[in-house]
């Protein structure tokens, strides 16, 4: 869990880290705290997994990765951990999760996001996944994204 000070820090940083030589000094000043104290708090948030990493989120579309396929698979329950680990390690898979099925409409329990320059490239990569899953996979599908409808990331609601 997070306390009120952590919350202030998260709110101050959710828009991003300032692009200037001493970014934490600037954020600390805004929060009325010392830079050292801020860095200490951030290190603690990181060790607890509240902050996963401090990094850039690239825009796939602008990088020419215009095709994005959510590949979905119905994998035998007793093999999903072993196979999910293998699929998650593929260099072209950016996210890989086991999720519950929604029967009868949705038999798929393994989701792997694949990006490529076009659909042919995504299909080639998908064929590699098909080969790895082999007999353990009973059904599969791919859902291409045709439009980004919203992308804001996590936003804390202002609390009084």
């Amino acid at each position: 869990m997070i306390d009120a000070k952590d919350r202030e820090i998260i709110e101050a940083l959710q828009g991003g880290l300032p692009l200037m030589p001493a970014p934490y000094a600037r954020v600390a000043e805004r929060l009325g705290m010392d830079e050292d104290a801020l860095l200490f708090r951030l290190a603690e948030l990181k060790s607890r997994g509240v902050i996963r990493r401090i990094a850039a989120a690239p825009n796939h579309y602008k990088l020419g990765m215009t095709s994005n396929g959510m590949t979905v698979w119905d994998v035998q329950n007793d093999r999903v951990t072993e196979l999910g680990t293998q699929i998650g390690a593929l260099p072209f898979v950016t996210h890989c999760y086991e999720r519950p099925r929604a029967l009868p409409d949705w038999p798929y329990n393994l989701f792997a996001m694949v990006h490529g320059a076009d659909r042919d490239e995504v299909e080639e990569k998908r064929a590699e996944i098909t080969a790895i899953l082999g007999d353990a996979c009973r059904a599969k599908d791919i859902l291409y994204s045709t439009r980004i409808l919203k992308k804001t990331g996590l936003r804390l609601k202002a609390k009084g």
Binding site: Q14, G16, A56, P58, K151
Partner: peptide, 8 residues
């Protein structure tokens, strides 16, 4: 770059 900073 759509965003640069901590991922929560």
């Amino acid at each position: 770059i759509t965003r640069f900073g901590p991922f929560f």
